[in-house]
Nucleic acid binder design. Sequence first.
RNA 1: CGGGAUGUGGCUCAGCUGGCUAGAGCGCUGCGUUCGGGACGCAGAAGUCGGAGGUUCGAAUCCUCUCAUCCCGACCA
Length: 578
Amino acid sequence: MRWSQTFIPTLKEAPKDAEAVSHQLMLRGGFIQPLSSGLYIYLPLGNKVLDKVSRVIREVLGEYGAIELSMPALQPKSIWERSGRWETMQDIMMKIRDREEKEFILGPTHEEIITDLVARRVFSYRQLPLNFYQIQTKFRDELRPRFGLVRAKEFIMKDGYSFDLSPAGAEISYQKMYEAYFKIFHRCGMPVEAVQADTGAMGDGGKSHEFIVLTPIGEDMVVKCFSCGYSANLELAERKPKGVPEKQEGDKSHELVHTPNARTIEEVSAFFNAQVWKFIKTLIYIADENEKLAVLIRGDYEVNEIKLKRYLKCQQLRMATPGEIEKATGASVGFAGPVQLNRACRLIADLSLSTLSQAITGANKTDHHYQHVNPGRDFEMNEMADIGTAMEGDACVRCGSALNLKRGIEVGHVFFLGEKYTRKLDAKVVMQDGNESHLVMGCYGIGVSRMLSAIVESNHDGQGIIWPVSVSPFEVIITPVDFSDERTRVESLRIYEALKIQNVDILLDDRDERPGFKFKDADLIGIPIKVIIGKKGLDKNIVEILLRKDGTKTEVPLDKAVQTILETKRLCLEKLNG
RNA sequence: CGGGAUGUGGCUCAGCUGGCUAGAGCGCUGCGUUCGGGACGCAGAAGUCGGAGGUUCGAAUCCUCUCAUCCCGACCA
C-alpha cells in the first residue's frame, strides 16, 4: 500500500479527551475516530489491526478444532426469558422494538443462541464434542464507557462455546481453550496471565479464569503472589489478613461509651482517637430475601460481597435497608455491633477479627459504642470465614508470602458452564445407551477490539506505538528520504514491489514530505520494521533497516535488501510464536 | 446514578474583574526557498465562543437551565 493512497489521519497532539496512552496513540495514529461516547469508527489502520488479531485467533482456534460461525446481533427477547437471563442481564442489554412492538435486544453475548442451535440440530452423541466460535460485534449498555476501546458500548468480541457429553469431556475442552488462549495472546505480543475469576452472570460459580494484561489503566484488580504464583481476581482472591500493627493492651472488660452522632468509622475513630483497625465493622445483609446476617470485619478491611456470597452459597445478597437494620439491632444505622446481636441474626466474622482484642464496636444502641470488646469473650464467633477484600501486604493462603495488587485489562475469559444453559434451553442428545443426556458447556471470550488497547498499552514508547509484527497494520514501512529523487524512487519502488510479491504487508511512504516528518509518522503508527532509502545510502549502495522496537540499525547492500527484510520479518514472527 | 472537570476554527490552547472587526501555535490552500528526525517566508481559507433563556446600552466573559465529553466512584463479560 502506498501512503498517499490510503487514509492515515495522524495528529501531532492528542485530543484532550483521551487520557489513556493507548487511547491517545490510537487517536493520534489515525486508527480510530470517536463517534459518540463508547462508539468508534475503525479507520483503515485500526481495521487492519482488528483483522490481524482476528487472523491470529482463527489460526490458533483452527489448530484446536474450533469451528467458526456467525449469529445475529439482533435477538428476540423471548430466548433470553427462556434462559432466565432476561432478569439477570437486563440492565446491560440494549433493547429495541420493531414496528410491531415486538421486543428485541442487541446481543451482549450469544450463549442462548448457540445453545438453541445445538438443541435444534444436534441429536446424537456421535456428533460431539463440538466447539463453535464467532467473531462479531456485540453491544452492552455500559454505564460508563472508558479508555477508548477498553470499554465501549459496541465492541468486537470472539466468543466460543464448547459442548461435551460429560463434565470430564467439558474439562478437556476447557483446558484446550485455556492453552489456546496463551498461544493467541503471546502471538499478539501480549504478556498475559491467567487468574482465577468469578463467573458473574455467565455461569453458576463454577471454574473460570480471566486472562489479564497488567497495565495501570486496567479496570480489574489482580491479586498476585510472586513467590508461589497464586493469582486471582480481587473479586475472589483468598488471603490471610495481616495482624494488627500494635500490641494489644490489657484485658479490660467491655464498656459502654456515649458517642453522639459518630456513625462512620472516620467519625468514631476521631472520637476515640484510635486507628481504624481497632474497630469491628458490623454490616447487616439479607441473603436470598429470607436470612438476616451480621457480617463482622476489622475496620481496615472491606467486605467482599462476592466471597461472602460464595461462602453462603446463596443466589442473592444485598445490604439491609435502614429500616431492617434498626429492626435487627434496635439502634439507628451506624451503631450496629456484635455484642448480643446473635439473638437477632446469624453472625459471620471475617478472619481479620482473629488477632483483634480490646476493639471498639457499635453497641446496638443509638449514639453508643462499646470499647474493650474481645471477640469470643464478649460475643460468640462460631462462624469465621475469609470474606474480606484482599489488600496489598496480606499473606498468601498457600505460601504465606505477601500478596501484591495489580491493575490489568481483561482480554479473555474462560468459563466452565456445566448444564446451566443446556438444561434451560433443552440441549440434549441420545447417548450410546439410548438414554437422553444434557450437554455440558463451556464458553470462551476474547475482547478483540479491547485487545488493541491492551496491545498498545504494553507496546509503546515516547514516539508512539510499537506493534508486534503479527498484528501490525503493516509489517514493513519504506521511507524514501526524498521520493522526488529519481534514484531513490526507483529503488524504493523496486524493493516495494519485490516485497509485495513475497507477501510482505508493506507500506510505502510516497508522500512529498520532509524526511523528519515521515520518520515521526512512521514511529507514531508503529510499524515494526523500517526501511530507509536515501541518496546518502544509495551512494554507498546500501539501504538501512531499522527495528522500531529498539532502534537497531542494519545497513545492507541494495541487492541484499529484500532478502534481509524477509529474514528480519521471519525472526520477529518467530519470537512471538516461541 | 453520585462526585469532579472541561466545552472558543480540524487539533492544542489564550482571551473570561463585561467594551469596538474573537486571537495564537499546529493543521489546511496557493506561491517561493528548503529537504537524513514533525523547516522557513509571504499570501489566504476557516469560528452559530456547545445550546436555550435571562441580566445589561453592550455578553465568549455575569446568572439560570440544558446538552455533550472526559476522570473518580457505583455497576459490569
